[in-house]
Amino acid sequence: MLDDTDRRILRFYQADPGLTAAQLAAQAGLATATCWRRVERMIENGVIRGNRAVIDWRALGYEVEVSLRISLDKTNSRAFDEFIAEARSVPDVIEIQTFLGRVDVRLSVIARDMAHYQDIYRKRILSLPHISDIEALMHVARIKSDETLPL
């Protein structure tokens, strides 16, 4: 379990994962070696799963984001597995989520423009197996996108 010192380290770390060990230790009020041991322990325990680059896909020319809510044909016992395996291979699908309820899967798809999206939808999405229903929601604005935890 995490103690208050671990939470303090995580608050600073998630605010700026680019901090050096010494900078993180100074902000957390710890010796560098002590701070780094705690960080390594949190990595080993799976609390910290890694650092990653967050790329603004709009800056790369992708202007369209569509959320597809998909219901699958549940009469086939392999429907989920086969659908997910195929959906993973579509490079324009940037997120896949599964649900319990009327909607089984949500795909987040990005495209350069509407013509590009139409091409992806017709050639890649509609060819995915076991789709019984699909609803497209055009993304208008991202109001909040925050992966930091209230530690």
Rank of each mutant, 00 (worst) to 15 (best):
L100H: 01
D3A: 05
R8E: 11
W57N: 07
P91V: 07
R7T: 02
I131W: 09
W36D: 14
W36L: 14
A28K: 02
D113G: 04
R78S: 10
W57Y: 05
A136Y: 05
A111S: 14
T75A: 10
T34L: 11
L151H: 07
L19F: 00
G50F: 08
E86T: 15
D56F: 05
A141T: 15
R102L: 06
D104N: 04
L107Q: 04
D92W: 01
A53R: 08
L107G: 08
R106W: 04
D56W: 04
G46H: 03
T20F: 04
D6I: 00
R88S: 06
L149D: 06
N45T: 03
A15Y: 12
I9L: 09
R52C: 03
E147P: 12
I94G: 14
A79I: 03
R69W: 09
V105E: 10
I125V: 08
G46V: 02
R7I: 03
A22E: 15
R124Q: 15
S108F: 12
M114N: 10
A26T: 09
I43M: 11
Q118M: 12
G61Y: 02
E95Y: 10
Q118T: 12
V105K: 11
L107Y: 10
N51A: 10
D146L: 06
D73T: 11
D133I: 13
L10Y: 04
V39P: 07
I96C: 05
E82F: 13
L72G: 10
T75I: 10
W36Q: 14
L24D: 01
D119G: 06
R122T: 13
I143L: 04
S108E: 15
R41T: 04
Q23W: 00
T34V: 06
I134G: 08
D92H: 07
G61A: 07
I9H: 09
T32Y: 08
F80I: 03
